[in-house]
Design a protein around this nucleic acid. Structure first.
Length: 128
DNA sequence: TAGGCCATCTGGTCCT
DNA sequence: AGGACCAGATGGCCTA
């Protein structure tokens, strides 16, 4: 199967094309470096922590909550790492075009489907 | 300014 | 009991 065949596989890849256009024209091009983005995220974290100091001070329950929040944060980071790993093995992505989470999942599903089709066709040709 | 995407917090539920 | 998972709420950032 040629790559152009893969491109022709219905909607999710059209979504991908739109996503690439959208992202290539955004973020990094307007001087927003990844470092700055990270800084903004950290600042967000600090704000949250400042808000939560009261929870920290309100005894065992507050401590348990904060511990659970840490675990949840860690869990979501793991999930995002897995999504990044998935993005990295998907084909034909320009360096600065990052798929959203939902786009990544849809594209992966579509890509697997296309590969499966390719294998099935190969098997058919081998047998006949 | 509205809408999309994201990170985080939170409470509920299930599992070990 | 404590941890994992989940879904809803909230607020920030960015683009059209």
């Amino acid at each position: 199967m040629l790559f152009k065949d893969l491109i022709s596989v219905k909607s999710p890849l059209m979504v991908l094309k739109c996503a690439n256009l959208r992202r290539m024209s955004s973020r990094d091009s307007d001087g927003n470096s990844p470092e700055l983005h990270q800084h903004q995220q950290q600042r967000k974290m600090c704000d949250r922590k400042a808000l939560n100091t009261s929870a920290e001070q309100c005894g065992p329950r507050g401590k348990r909550r904060m511990k659970a929040n840490d675990r949840e944060r860690h869990r979501m980071h793991n999930l995002n790492s897995a999504l990044d790993a998935l993005r990295n093995i998907l084909p034909a992505l320009p360096e600065d075009a990052k798929l959203t989470k939902i786009e990544t999942l849809r594209f992966a599903r579509n890509y697997i489907w296309a590969l499966t089709e390719t294998l099935q066709k190969q098997d058919f040709n081998t047998v006949s």
